[in-house]
Design a protein around this nucleic acid. Structure first.
Lengths: 344, 344
DNA sequence: TTGTAGGCGTTATCAC
DNA sequence: GTGATAACGCCTACAA
């Protein structure tokens, strides 16, 4: 069922059908009605591909994120989908799964499919794939993660400031030895660890600001396999021995919960012996006892700002390079407290 | 940059370019090399819309699910994306957000965009939108939720059997008064509550099988607002008073955790005073103490089976109506135990 | 081995 | 008001 079929059925030309379909002026109300009736009866819908080919608009946005299993990405994705739905755009959701090559491929597919705009959380530290999009003058926003060398729109959160503030909060409580449990850094040449670096820099800068050093033995990277493991000694060892840490800043909430549960099981008090902090303020984990002291991200604002910037460029035909950095909020619960050594 | 541009640059016709592009026989190796070089240098990529229009294939699958914030859907979506990526299909992920009208619209958009196949978790109890897809002979699989009147492929899990087994497990432990905390049922004319009904039916059938009745006062529907609420008396009231329930079967894990945390806070022992069970076996919640006794769904199999059925229909040009119902697994942890009245 | 013409289903621009 | 006709960018025949 094409526009030609409708034309034939109604005994008119496809030009006339087109006019009826789009409410264009210069058409007899009678024939218009007849055409619209035929359209309805036959369930005719214009072919998107042909339409897009002829108009040059695709009304499609490419959203490329690492995954949707992480609650943060799920929230962002949900909001972005809703925003574009409201505006009449169709979303192509692509998952890079932290795979730099897959990210490159998807970016090329976006070009093939002539998306009107692209939003990407880059996991690839090599900027060429993103630059190729820009060369084709397709509006783009980097979201949550940065590619510092690329001149384009960027919406990030202040990871540095968030970790700086959290560290100062712990220092203020009296902690002097704070362990740092980093998120998993995929050791591939291409992995973009910008976020890891920003958070860690906030952490160490806060320590330095207060005249504290960082004991490299108090650093650990949380490997995905730890979730499954029964044995947590590789990490809980940080909190005993000759020079134990009294607090642990975790890269995100899931790690914090994992750690907290195991510390308690191993006989540590939380926060009495060890303070634990997270990042993200995951809704699913908000019922945990003791509540995790964490950092809440402005997901709704990130999504809104990202969409606003992208739609602006699309509708104005511009390629701007706005940088937006959004602030976070410290959520104080019970998992962090005054260290035992500081109480009497 | 189109195929014509490449043809002009190389001084050949677009027919020849096409041959080079697709490795077709009957082309001079020299000119082929020259063309491929020009393609590379100019970053030429064929326009998906034109290609699809000409070939009739779109290599696109429409996946329509309620949301991605629910961990179950996120997992399913992730696996399906990976499966189609492997097979060279591009996924169009659409979120109905439990909105029957939005689901209808997306289904129509899938038709417009000429997807090769559709996977849908129907939230709309009205089957007409799905039937329209079928009329156009677009292969389709209903996933996780059913539309009993429609003759098509269906992959579901045995919700009925899962709740029947869990109920029998609780009865076996000695429980006689089991509360049922249902998931939120949107009271719209169109909402498809098939899953709610299947689970509840499994629950009541198990009770009946063991000569037990169900006290309607022990039923509660969990409203989304409860997550935010400080006051949990509306539900924890089920476990006190003249005829208290000794166990609670929850529609899913998040409700179970919510309930468990509040019961403990209100002075109940879990499982000593009240046993609590969930559904889904959410990874994020696996560290909770006491561990939630729950039901694990075969998400990987659901996704694999769904993809397999859809790809089969697409590649054979068939429209089959296979029904697959997958079994679940009871995961016994510590949140459910022998009721106090049964111990000495 | 290569070029040409026609078609895929629209929209847009002319005449009539 | 309406009907041809040429795009859009690709693929497939068929002809040379």
């Amino acid at each position: 069922m094409t526009i030609n079929d409708i034309a034939r059925i109604c005994g008119v030309s496809k030009g006339t059908v087109n006019r009826a379909l789009h409410g264009k002026p210069g058409i007899n109300p009678g024939t218009k009605e007849k055409i619209l009736a035929a359209v309805r009866e036959n369930g005719f819908r214009p072919d998107y591909r042909a339409k897009s080919l002829a108009t040059g608009k695709s009304f499609t946005i490419g959203l490329l994120i690492p995954n949707i299993e992480n609650q943060s990405f799920a929230m962002i994705g949900t909001i972005i989908e809703a925003e574009f739905w409201k505006r009449g755009y169709f979303l192509n959701l692509a998952l890079s799964n932290d795979d730099a090559e897959k990210e490159e491929s998807y970016l090329e597919l976006f070009v093939d499919r002539k998306v009107d705009g692209v939003i990407v959380f880059p996991v690839n530290r090599d900027p060429t794939a993103v630059e190729r999009i820009l060369e084709k003058r397709i509006p783009l926003v980097l979201m949550m993660n940065d590619l510092p060398s690329v001149e384009t729109n960027v919406v990030t959160i202040d990871e540095y400031g968030a970790f700086l503030a959290m560290t100062e909060y712990l220092i203020g409580l009296g902690h002097r030895d704070i362990a740092y449990i980093d998120g998993y850094k995929r050791y591939t040449a291409k992995y973009n660890d910008h976020i890891n670096r920003e958070r860690f820099r906030g952490f160490t800068d806060a320590l330095a600001k207060h005249g504290l050093g960082f004991d490299g033995n108090h650093y650990a990277e949380f490997l995905p396999a730890y979730y499954e493991q029964k044995d947590s000694s590789s990490i809980s060892g940080l909190f005993s021995g000759p020079n134990p840490a009294t607090a642990a800043m975790c890269f995100h909430d899931r790690i914090a919960v994992w750690l907290q549960v195991r510390l308690i099981r191993d006989g540590f008090g939380v926060p009495d012996d060890v303070s634990v902090t997270g990042f993200d303020d995951m809704a699913e984990l908000s019922d945990i006892v003791p509540g995790i002291t964490t950092i809440r991200n402005p997901f709704a604002e990130i999504a809104a700002k990202t969409v606003e910037m992208l739609v602006g460029d699309i509708e104005n035909g511009t390629m701007s390079a706005n940088k937006v950095r959004l602030g976070t909020e410290l959520i104080i619960r019970q998992s962090a407290g005054v260290p035992r050594s500081n109480r009497r």
